[in-house]
Each structure stands twice: as C-alpha cells, then as structure tokens.
Nucleic acid binder design. Structure first.
Lengths: 251, 251
DNA sequence: CTTGACCTTGCACGATATTGCACGAAAGAT
DNA sequence: ATCTTTCGTGCAATATCGTGCAAGGTCAAG
C-alpha cells in the first residue's frame, strides 16, 4: 500500500466514522503502528485532523459533530441512557430490553463496570461486544423484526432459567391508569415474563411516552420500581407516577 | 512497447485500479523503472494523474474511491458473500457463522428469498432484521467477544435441537492437510457441533486463508462440501482442495 | 548511403523517503 | 501508586527518486 493512499484512506475513514484508531488501522493494513502514527502526525501538521492519544479525530469539530450525532442518535435518548447506566451497580446482573434507548444505555456503561448484561436484543449484544469488562448473555429465539429482539418459546424458556437484579423494560406507553403498555401481544407477554424474573423493573421513558397507552398491557404501575425520565418544567406529568410510589430519576 | 502506448495503458490501469505502482509496471512490461517514472512525470505534468512516492494516483480522488475499497479487503469479502448468498435455495434453512464475510453474505441475500437463517452472531441478526422475507433464528448463549458470537453450553444445547440444510462455516485457515482450523479451542468444538447438525458445510475463504492453518482443528477437508474462493490467476492454491473432492465456487 | 538532429532507453550514483525497531518518556488505566 | 499502552525520537535498512550520461534507434536532409 502506498503512503499517500494510506493517508487518503485515513481521511475517508475519519470523515465516515468521526475517528480513527491507530492500532486498528495498523492491523487492518498490516503495517507497523509507527507508520500509522507517522501518517497521523503528518496529516495533523497539514491541519486535516487532530491527534489524540490512541488515534485521531477530525480537525474541524463540525465534521465530528455530525458523525457523532449519527452514532448516538437523539440527545434525549442518550441522556436517558446515561441515567439508566448510572443505576447499575458493580456485580449486578441486569436484563436489557431492546430499543434504541437501551442501546444508548449499553453504550454509556462505564468502561470499568464489572457486571453481567442479559439481553434478547442482538443490537445491544453487538454494542457491548467491545466493552472490556461487561459479560453478555444472549437470549436466543425467533427474531421479531419489528423490535429487533428474540422472541418465541425458545426465548421464554431461556428467560425462565435466569434471575436478574434489574430489568430495564422498554415500553411504548406509560400511563397512570393502564400502566406499562406495548403494541404487540406476544411481546407484552414476554416482557411480563422477564419482569417476573427480575428483582425490580426499571423503565426509561422519553417525554412522549409518559401518559400514553398502547394496545397491550404489560404491567400495572405497581410492578415498576423506578422510572427514568427526561427532566423538564413539565414535571406535572411525573406527579401521578410519583404518587403511585415509583422512584423517579431525572437529570 | 511504444511510449504513447504505455502512457495510454497507465491511464487505463489508473482508472480501473485507482492507483499504479512504478515497480509493478516496470516488471510487467519489462522496462526499467526509470522509464515508467519518466512516463509518470510527463503524465503528471499533463495533469492526468498525481505522482506519489512509489507510483501515482488519479488526479481526482473521486475515481479512486471504489478501487480503494477493493484493496482494503472488504470488496473481496463482499464478493465472496455474494457468491455464498447465491448458493442458498428458497425454503432452505441455513446456519450462518459469525465473521465479516458472513455479514456480507447476509447483506446480499436476494430481497425476495424466502428462507430461514439460524445464527449465533448478533451482528448477522441485526443485519437481517430488515430483510423482508428471511426468518431469523438466534442461538443464544454467552457472548464470546473476540468473535462476537454466542457460545457456551446454552448455545450448544440450542444447536443440538436444530438441523439445517447448510452451514456456512467461518475459519481462520483452510489447509489441504490440517483441514479447517480456527484460533480458539471452544469455538472449534462449537463449529464441529454445528457441522454435525448440517446436511453440508460450506466455507467462504479469502485468499489469505487458503493454505493457512491455525492452532485448533475443526474438521478435515472431507467434512466440507463446498469451498467458495476468490477467483484469480493463482488457482494453484485451489488444486489440492479440488483434488480432495470439494466443490469449488469462484466468481 | 551517410550524416546529424532528435528521441528513447537503461544505467550509475548521490539524494531523499519510507519503514520497522529500540528505548525512554508521557499518558491512561487499574 | 503501579502497570500497561501509547508516544516521540534516533537509527539503520531498504526503496524510491532525480539527474547526468552514454548507447542505441528513427528520420529527414544532404
């Protein structure tokens, strides 16, 4: 591979991913890390990127911003995820439901957290594949494409054999009267089953889910221990849930 | 060879490959590197290309884009994946092993293919989550982060209950004597187990895996029905495999 | 046919670039 | 506070480059 080819590729990757890692490039292209570091140094002195320990970032933060946001999605969900991640104690076994909010949670688990994550969401498994200390247990089953989680009897059997400290449950609605609801009958049943295997159930709910209700009930509010919600002036929406005895976590 | 002929060819190659290497051209055409360098210098001053240490790149970097990807290996894998996808018949149940090559295979399954894919790779499950007609069955278990697949007793149990028409097996080496090999003992055992549950085993091997051998044996060549390999002049590498009775598929 | 101008090619040689390694320093991680 | 990873620099080996030069080859005018 030609030197200038390498440099051009580095810039492409940087634009696409918003970052490059020296070691990864070195392994991918079969050259020494020194060579990559030299390339990065020179590109940095050309002003096209910014060196950081372990690799490089785009020079202009504007480019990084886009790629970054692309990766992390909406800020609200990322925020909820961060709050949820903070609820997990070292050594715990937690079940992570599917959904983008929980992917954000997985992404923001502290790098040094030693815990076990059980999930039937392949997306979360992929996300945690690069976490250094968290053990991941995948629940298999038939892939329900709408939610991108494993479901069916195989999943139910696997879940029945596991007990967890906390279940981060995904919902499409959380209403003072109807409790937690979702849009699929079988999914509701599976969530109910998981909740039974968990010491406590935690719900991360973005603003639009509070006060909403979907077709199929999962659990009454009494079955939910903690609600993680966006902070905001409209804390009114949280009042009925607080009254129902839920522990509320906000930013 | 005439000078202008050479220059025309250089431009052609540049367009096709996205780069030229002075030494390679000199050897291919039996002229000195000096001559090639002179050609490149002149073409550069014509603005046709851009000289770099070791050869030349296209003047406009856009052209290089596709060809660049070729060399980073992902195109080769995409190609293998496409060939592999073509081996799956409607209605079949196939097991897809982990690995980037198989992710490419999953990505290139025909949009109208009705089949069932069993996998212990969450990456492949995510990839197929948006396929309209393929059913996906996820094999659960402990996530082996190095390969990003589910492993362990839970996986073995689930696999023991499934029979598939074909197993697309990932390997790190495929050698005429040692057969299919991989770098982890437990992984080798699991692959062996899956192969037992499959009517036939298919291996997609990039060029560098042919003739290579890793620490742990999975199967002898006799256990493999079909080998999908990159096409190329160095078909010599394929000879021992063909002699061993494997059905060979190339582009 | 011969001659001389012009071009192309290969070679020699010093200059410059690139690469990998070693070793101590600095930055993160535990 | 200790350990590991990453960084920077110097160094040596190798590859590539540029230039000058000589050996041919082509072609047209003489």
């Amino acid at each position: 591979m030609l030197t200038s080819e390498r440099k051009a590729l580095i810039q492409q990757i940087l634009q696409r991913d918003g970052r490059v890692v020296a070691k990864a490039l070195s392994q991918a292209w079969g050259v020494s890390e020194d060579t990559i570091r030299r390339d990065l140094r020179e590109l940095a002195s050309d002003g096209v990127l910014q060196r950081v320990h372990g690799g490089a970032l785009p020079a202009s933060p504007a480019i990084a911003d886009f790629a970054q946001r692309e990766r992390t999605g909406s800020a609200a969900k990322a925020n909820l995820g961060r709050l949820g991640a903070g609820l997990i104690r070292p050594g715990q076994i937690v079940f992570l439901d599917g959904g983008t909010t929980h992917v954000h949670l997985a992404r923001q688990l502290p790098r040094d957290l030693k815990a076990t994550v059980v999930t039937h969401s392949p997306s979360i498994a992929v996300e945690l594949a690069h976490h250094p200390t968290v053990d991941v247990e995948i629940v298999g089953g038939r892939l329900f494409k709408h939610s991108v989680v494993a479901m069916g009897s195989a999943s139910a059997e696997a879940i029945a054999r596991i007990r967890v400290d906390a279940y981060f449950m995904g919902v499409t609605g959380l209403h003072p009267d109807t409790g937690a609801t979702t849009g699929d009958h079988e999914e509701a049943a599976l969530k109910r089953l998981i909740a039974r295997q968990a010491a406590e159930t935690i719900v991360l709910a973005t603003r639009e889910k509070l006060g909403a209700a979907s077709a199929y009930g999962i659990l009454p509010l009494a079955g939910i221990a903690t609600l993680v919600a966006e902070a905001g002036r409209d804390d009114d929406r949280l009042v009925p849930f607080r009254a129902a005895g839920l522990s509320i976590v906000t930013a």
